[in-house]
Design a protein around this nucleic acid. Structure first.
Length: 514
DNA sequence: TTCCGACAGTGGGGTCGCAAT
DNA sequence: ATTGCGACCCCACTATCGGAA
């Protein structure tokens, strides 16, 4: 199979908006793939590289020599398997001179590609395929190509951790082959994700009685234990075992022969309150001097689910049964605090206590939900308090993709009461409807004071109400603080910039959380 | 016919580790 | 030593499609 075949399929997929038509086009292409090519084809057409990452991003591609006009002789002859080999080599170079070597390999590759192939490669390498089909749509396409139920493909991909491998199995061995793929201790599966609810009462309306658990602001850990061997994986299935010795020790001490556990790891202060997320991230992200770091910033694990125990898979058991089994093997202080209730007042009190202790909020879990790996179902609902501020728009950046032509990303500032100036403390592009994007583009252009290719600076007059999850330290912004997960709620045309919130008010919110 | 779950897209800040400057 | 870059932690929200109700 040629790269050109994938590029033309991708173009066709991008040009139709109907999901069913995308699936049909992808399935047709997969059917023509040989058994050795199908995994690479699935990866490429769902916007990923088999190598996961090869050290090439936007800036590397930007610095490649400009392509010559017109396609070179022999362009369009590139085979998918050869492209895969070249990218393997790009990804495996390291050490001094590796960047130059990467550029050399990529330059040679691009010189042999048609314009359509180059566009496809660029988008693939930057992770911006923008054809309206990623893993989800591809799973359906694989099912269609292999003429098997989509649920079987998704199940195999969930347990194998890899849709491309499931595709090869589906096309080669059909349903019987897919059925043989199961949970293997030591091989991570997609973690179950939580939806959101506005408040505890709303969450309880969807399921009562329900279990409430503390929502902890750390990193997700999936722990596999087989005999004495322990492995720890992140939400994106990376192996971080070496960085989390505390987690390894906890798992090794459990009275089991094998288990797969789900939990959250975070740094706590000596008084038991959570340290800022930045400190947990720093600790769990560090590979060097782990033993020393451990003394300074110890991690605590809170387990909240059990997917496998001593040879038995549990993901198809109702949540409350998994929870009971977990409690039977884990020490009480290794469990996420939990309350089962159908009483809104008791639930509210539990949530308030979690917040008073400095945690993010609660997760409300249906008692009979199965472990829906990789899905953001309503079986789990997170509830977190939201802060809002009225801030001033001081600039905006042009959007990309479907937001091309609109001013999208707002530069937000708080008022400095001392100087009367506006102090930038972050950006946001979230929460806007198409209608609002069009409106703000027009309004901001009318306030424009200067502009470059990316950014339009404006007179600080528009006030916008912004919701956010918290205030964190920043080395990037002049006020030393920034907002976590800022999103637009609405414009406040009734307010002038002089009425906007002050930088002191922002800092006070940060202090209150400590 | 309407509703709603799943998906894709559009990007945010911080941190680490590596290579280049 | 410092800077630029890529990768990966955390993540919210809207638009759209298409099956469920």
């Amino acid at each position: 199979m040629r790269l050109l075949d994938l590029a033309t399929t991708s173009t066709a997929v991008a040009e139709t908006s109907a999901r069913s038509a995308k699936i049909a086009l992808l399935a047709e292409r997969l059917r023509t793939a040989g058994p050795e090519e199908v995994t690479v084809a699935v990866h490429y057409l769902s916007g990923e590289l088999p190598q996961r990452q090869i050290g090439v991003g936007w800036a590397t591609l930007r610095d490649l020599p400009a392509p010559v006009a017109g396609d070179a002789a022999g362009a369009g002859e590139l085979e998918v398997a050869e492209v895969d080999r070249i990218l393997d080599e790009v990804g495996s170079t390291s050490g001094a001179g590796s960047q130059a070597r990467r550029r050399e390999l990529l330059t040679a590759l691009f010189a042999r590609a048609t314009a359509e192939e180059q566009s496809f490669l660029r988008r693939l390498l930057t992770g911006e395929l923008r054809q309206g089909a990623l893993d989800g749509v591809m799973a359906d396409a694989v099912a269609k190509a292999a003429e098997v139920p989509a649920a079987e493909v998704r199940r195999a991909a969930m347990f194998g951790g890899d849709l491309a491998a499931a595709a090869r199995t589906a096309l080669r061995d059909g349903v019987p082959g897919l059925r043989e793929v199961g949970l293997v201790v030591g091989r991570p599966i997609q973690p179950m994700l939580a939806g959101t609810a506005d408040d505890v009462a709303a969450a309880l309306q969807k399921a009562a009685p329900a279990a409430l658990e503390w929502k902890l602001d750390g990193i997700r850990v999936q722990i596999h234990r087989a005999g004495d061997r322990v492995q720890v994986f992140t939400r994106s299935l990376d192996d971080i075992t070496d960085r989390l010795p505390e987690v390894v020790e906890l798992a090794r001490a459990l009275p089991v022969t094998s288990a797969v556990l789900d939990g959250e790891a975070l740094a706590l202060a000596p008084d038991g309150r959570p340290r800022p997320f930045q400190e947990t991230a720093s600790r769990t992200g560090s590979r060097r001097d782990v033993a020393k770091l451990r003394e300074q910033i110890p991690l605590t694990v809170f387990l909240f689910d059990l997917l496998h125990l001593d040879g038995r898979d549990l993901i198809d058991l109702p949540s409350h049964e998994r929870s009971d089994l977990l409690a039977s093997i884990a020490p009480p202080d290794g469990l996420a605090p939990r309350l089962v209730t159908d009483d809104p007042q008791a639930a509210e009190a539990f949530a308030k206590d979690a917040l008073d202790r400095g945690h993010e909020g609660v997760v409300v879990k249906s008692l009979d939900a199965l472990y829906t790996a990789g899905r953001r179902g309503s079986g789990w609902l997170k509830v977190k308090p939201v802060h809002t501020l009225d801030l001033v728009v001081v600039a905006a950046e042009w959007g990309h993709g479907r937001r091309s032509g609109w001013l999208s990303n707002l530069h937000l500032a708080a008022r400095d009461p001392e100087s009367g100036e506006f102090v930038m403390l972050g950006k946001t592009f979230k929460g806007m409807t198409d209608e609002l994007l069009a409106w703000q583009t027009e309004r901001l252009r009318a306030l424009q004071t200067s502009a470059d290719d990316w950014t339009v600076r404006v007179r600080p007059e528009l006030v916008v109400e912004v919701a956010f999850d918290g205030v964190q330290r920043s080395s990037r912004y002049p006020g030393g603080v920034t907002l976590r997960f800022a999103r637009v709620v609405r414009y406040r045309e009734d307010k002038r910039a002089q009425d906007a919130d002050t930088i002191d008010a922002v800092r006070a919110i940060g202090q209150a959380a400590q």
